[in-house]
């Protein structure tokens, strides 16, 4: 993240953003991974992940955020997230039913438990995170194009 005074907000905002944006991203991933144990899950975590990128974009201007996640990459990842979710659901056919939880359930309150639910959460997290970011990006690009 170069410090280019031409784009984005003031130095204070940029410094704080540089410190916090990683933490926000990490927190989002934490929420996604613990979706089956505590409140939160794919959607909430995905929104937080998206917010970390939005934060970056607001502070440093559009170009830096786009250099991290371009619009094409975002829309491709979104499709991949959706297909991942669908294929997890289809895996249930192996056990005989759509959306059947075929993986071993494990013991409750462990991180690796609850069968396919954490996998679903990850898929949703990817989809929501990049999807929301793509919406934001599209609106910003739309506004700039005038």
């Amino acid at each position: 993240m170069r410090n280019n005074p031409e784009t984005g907000m003031t130095l204070i905002v940029k410094t704080i953003t540089r410190l916090t944006v990683g933490l926000i991203l990490l927190f989002g991933i934490y929420i996604i991974l613990h979706g089956h144990l505590s409140p939160g899950g794919g959607f909430a975590g995905g929104v937080i992940v998206a917010l970390s990128f939005v934060h970056l974009m607001l502070a440093f201007g559009k170009d830096i955020a786009v250099s991290r996640v371009s619009k094409n990459l975002a829309s491709n990842l979104e499709s991949i997230g959706a297909l991942m979710f669908l294929s997890i659901a289809l895996l249930g056919f192996l056990g005989g039913s759509f959306f059947l939880n075929i993986l071993p359930k494990g013991t409750p309150f462990n991180l690796f438990s609850a069968g396919i639910i954490p996998l679903c959460n990850i898929a949703i997290g990817i989809k929501v995170g990049v999807g929301l970011f793509a919406i934001f990006l599209a609106l910003v690009v739309l506004e700039r194009s005038k």
């Binding site: 599209a138 609106l139 739309l142 506004e143």
Partner: peptide, 24 residues
Amino acid sequence: VLTSIVIGLGVTALVISIAVRIYE
């Protein structure tokens, strides 16, 4: 309600982008 919020998000995003294009 969580599902409904997601739907609301989708509708709002779509409507806002349409409104921006209308403004153009």
